[in-house]
Design a protein around this nucleic acid. Structure first.
Length: 268
DNA sequence: GCGACAG
DNA sequence: ATCTTGTCGC
């Protein structure tokens, strides 16, 4: 698939002020509430685990009408080459994988990640032949200084429902401790002075997608935020329904592994 | 000036 | 993100 908004495609040759101005423009176009056609109840992680595997749909056939969810992740081959890896799943089955290599024009700068990795990601989407309903990105969406993190930038550019799944908090303020949550629990992340949204706006959640039973070992929660056309609560719900016994939701976990494999194959 | 900062 | 073996715990 190709960008619906070519003018939003991340351009690494812009200066910092121009990048930030583009982000504000993108945030203004972003929709941080549910606005999609698929049935979120029909999104599932895999066919082996979870309550859903026990119901009538687990008859061994793949539901060709189920939503297509794509996981996206990147790895770096050198200092100036990034590879994006995309894995598309439908009804818990991998139906397509694509990848693309692109030059990294700028270094990592907190708040400007999409200008470093966005080019490779859009190139990966260009190779995708299936029509995705939803995408998970590794990084923030609305939890961003200008409410335009990687997931929002790419989601708006493609006009594709998207969710940001990060391992660390970029900005914002958890309303309670995010330590020792039970599996399935979540804690609101509110906008603070670092975020352009009105103070107190729930811009995402810390989501405990996995946790050990006993008290000696801990798993840190994921930081989930809306990218585009998905509300914060639904974003957290979808991450949990795509989780299958691992910290990362399946689309992201599989894209992660694919990116690692590509790095080995294409690396130096 | 100081601190904070996805991947 | 990336550099990397063993190792603690279930």
């Amino acid at each position: 698939m190709d960008p619906v908004h070519p003018d939003f495609v991340p351009d690494a040759s812009l200066d910092r002020e121009e990048m930030e101005a583009l982000q504000r423009e993108i945030a203004a176009q972003a929709i941080f509430e549910d606005d999609f056609d698929f049935d979120p109840g029909r999104v599932r992680a895999d066919r082996e685990t979870g309550q859903q595997a026990l119901d009538a749909t687990s008859d061994g056939t793949t539901d060709g009408d189920a939503p297509v969810v794509v996981g996206v992740d990147q790895a770096f081959l050198d200092d100036d080459r990034a590879v994006s890896a995309l894995v598309a799943l439908q009804d818990g089955v991998v139906i397509e994988r694509t990848h693309a290599v692109a030059q990294t024009e700028i270094p990592y700068i907190p708040g400007l990640l999409s200008f470093r990795e966005g080019g490779a990601i859009l190139a990966g989407f260009r190779e995708l032949t299936v029509e995705p309903d939803l995408a998970f990105f590794d990084g923030s969406g609305r939890i961003h200084f200008r409410e335009a993190g990687l997931a929002t930038h790419v989601g708006v550019t493609l006009d594709l429902p998207s969710i940001g799944v990060a391992k660390n908090l970029l900005c914002g303020r958890p309303v309670a401790s995010t330590d020792g949550l039970a599996e399935g629990e979540r804690v609101d992340i509110e906008a603070d002075g670092d975020v352009t949204a009105p103070d107190g706006t729930v811009v995402g959640y810390a989501v405990q997608s996995r946790q050990y039973d006993s008290p000696n070992r801990y798993v840190n929660p994921l930081i989930v935020s809306p990218g585009h056309r998905v509300g914060a609560a639904t974003a957290a719900d979808l991450v949990l329904s795509c989780s299958a016994g691992y910290k990362l939701p399946e689309p992201t976990r599989l894209a992660d592994k694919y990116a690692d494999d590509l790095k080995s194959e294409l690396g130096d």
